[in-house]
Design a protein around this nucleic acid. Structure first.
Length: 246
DNA sequence: AACTACCTCAACCGCGATAGC
DNA sequence: AGCTATCGCGGTTGAGGTAGT
């Protein structure tokens, strides 16, 4: 029988409570949150402790405004995953699912409301693709000076055509929201296979004339360069990560 | 300066999934 | 197999801050 908790504290956390939780996690690690709350001497539910840790206390959390780059990624990933906030947050280092959810509710839903359209309507989708996302893209600042892990310069590809990827002979697609394989030459889009949401692309699919590849971020770790890109064509956005080692 | 409206975001709740007994 | 505890997720709320009047 589940013990009915007496005098469980709710509401904002004090710095003393934070310290106790951090100290306990440093000793016992994450998980078993109810017992963790107990050994920490906190009159909090395990649930509350878990939330406090994940959304506020854990290391490497990013604070402050969601950057245009992150906004773009949220919009793109929402096309793919819908309201699966934790899935979206996995792709935003240092951001919690709560951050993503809050952004969506306070900014995106509000905007849809102002436009008097449903958030999932074709009209709003069109607005996102052809107005909002391009405006976010325009706010991108090349990140070559922000790199910290290497002295090499970052390569930033902006608004290049799909085939420009072939200028990087060692480029491989390492993950993608769509499944496709880079060709040695010719048309890299040839092997675009299928979309999860049911729109099938035939294997002899050739690069459509209206396809545009956008780069919105790049970073590197050791010898690897990561490019996050998306392409737009026929109202179907896509997202992929390209790994280039030089 | 005081009031109000709006915004942000931390925290709670309910529920389904999973693990363990 | 069934029950209970725990975890994780998405939806929602509300306190505190800020901007506007």
């Amino acid at each position: 029988m589940k013990q009915v908790s007496m005098e469980m504290k709710k509401g904002p956390w004090s710095s003393d409570e934070d310290s106790k939780l951090i100290h306990s996690i440093s000793i016992f690690g994450q998980g078993r949150w109810d017992s963790l709350a107990h050994v920490a001497g906190l009159k909090r539910s395990g649930k509350s402790c878990r939330l406090r840790w994940l959304n506020y206390l854990r290391p490497n959390l990013r604070r402050g405004k969601i950057t245009p780059q992150e906004q773009l990624l949220i919009l793109l990933l929402h096309f793919r995953f819908g309201n699966r906030w934790s899935k979206i947050a996995e792709n935003l280092p240092g951001r919690s699912d709560n951050d993503v959810k809050n952004y969506w509710r306070t900014k995106v839903q509000k905007h849809a409301k102002q436009l008097h359209c449903e958030i999932n309507s074709q009209q709003f989708r069109h607005f996102l693709l052809y107005e909002w996302m391009p405006s976010l893209l325009a706010q991108q600042i090349p990140t070559s000076s922000s790199s910290s892990s290497s002295s090499s310069e970052l390569i930033v590809m902006e608004n290049c055509s799909p085939n420009d990827i072939n200028t990087y002979p060692n480029a491989n697609i390492i993950s993608s929201t769509d499944s496709f394989v880079k060709e040695d030459d010719s048309n890299i889009w040839k092997n675009l296979s299928s979309f999860e949401d049911g729109i099938n692309i035939p294997h002899d699919f050739s690069t459509p004339s209206d396809m545009t590849l956008h780069n919105y971020s790049s970073h590197h770790e050791d010898d690897h360069y990561y490019f996050h890109n998306y392409w737009t064509s026929a109202e179907m956005p896509s997202l992929y990560e390209m790994d280039v080692w030089l």
